[in-house]
Write a protein that binds this DNA or RNA. Structure first.
Length: 280
DNA sequence: AAACAAACCTGTGCGC
DNA sequence: TGCGCACAGGTTTGTT
């Protein structure tokens, strides 16, 4: 579910509501969500710790603790982080509950029906062994302020279909299926173009499109689709889905050329949406 | 190296 | 109404 804008929205919610608070008690339901370590490791790592910051790299949430350890949460497809009043009825698939000290009495929930997501506390001194994928993440367009030159170098470095390259978290981190399709459409570039044959002019447009789509999606609180799976920590839905021009609009009129119809095809196992008329 | 497919899970929406 | 199938925001692993 969540891509960079949704994860950034959650990060901001954590910064506002959780940073500075101590975790008094931790409950772990399904052990699968703490599979990288163990139920006990998460409880021991979090109990008594205060969250000192809320960070993000790509789709990874990274929260340093006053113990020197760091909390990492990845929402994957269906994960949610919610701040709720203490004692409030928990939704199905609430796998981790962190009881926050102070008033009002609140809890931070990790909810995840599909349990692809995970929660882990790790020691930053041993990040290479404990969360090795962090070191392999590519440039984060927003956090790193990806420049056109940086982007051009990445696109030109290899010959890959452009959508596959944009989705590769080792190259650029944070873009997922929705924002990939939206960016390619805004730039007028087809998903299956060879990256090393994208022209300098198109690279400029695509870079601008990525930055614009991600920024506007963040300002819109992300995209909440029909299943309303994704919401911020306060339970509030995003509204960028109202601005989608291709994603989930198969068969509908293209909002750019207003002549073509949006087509949906399978590309690398992902539903891919584009306008054959204005994307070349 | 790049392109696929499958795997990990549960829920929902659709056609019949 | 019920059933079965397709499909879903992500990432890793293994195979051509």
């Amino acid at each position: 579910m969540p891509e960079l804008p949704e994860v950034e929205t959650v990060r901001r919610g954590l910064a506002a509501q959780v940073v500075g608070r101590r975790i008094e008690r931790v409950e772990v339901g399904r052990e699968r969500v703490v599979r990288r370590t163990s139920r006990q490791a998460l409880i021991d790592g979090l109990t008594g710790a205060t969250v000192v910051a809320a960070g993000r790299r790509g789709k990874y949430l990274l929260c340093p603790l006053d113990t020197g350890d760091e909390l990492m949460v990845h929402l994957r497809m269906s994960g949610r982080l919610l701040v709720a009043a203490a004692g409030q009825e928990r939704p199905p698939h609430t796998h981790v509950v962190m009881h926050l000290a102070g008033l009002p009495a609140q809890e931070l929930w990790f909810v995840d029906p599909r349990t692809f997501g995970e929660v882990v506390v790790f020691d930053p001194a041993h990040v290479a062994e404990q969360v090795p994928e962090l070191a392999r993440l590519g440039v984060d367009p927003i956090a790193d302020g990806m420049t056109r030159a940086q982007f051009a170098a990445l696109v030109r470095a290899r010959s890959r279909q452009i959508k596959a390259l944009l989705l590769d978290q080792h190259v650029i981190t944070g873009i997922g299926n929705i924002y990939c399709d939206e960016s390619l459409h805004l730039a007028g570039v087809r998903h299956d173009r060879a990256s090393d044959r994208v022209t300098p002019r198109e690279i400029t447009k695509l870079h601008a499109a990525i930055m614009e789509v991600l920024s506007e999606a963040i300002e819109s609180g992300g995209s909440t689709l029909a299943d309303t799976q994704y919401v911020g920590v306060d339970g509030v839905a995003g509204w960028f889905q109202l601005h989608h021009r291709v994603y989930d609009r198969a068969g509908q009129r293209c909002l750019s050329c207003s002549k073509g119809n949006i087509v949906r095809v399978d590309f690398g196992g992902r539903g891919t949406h584009f306008c054959p008329r204005c994307q070349k």
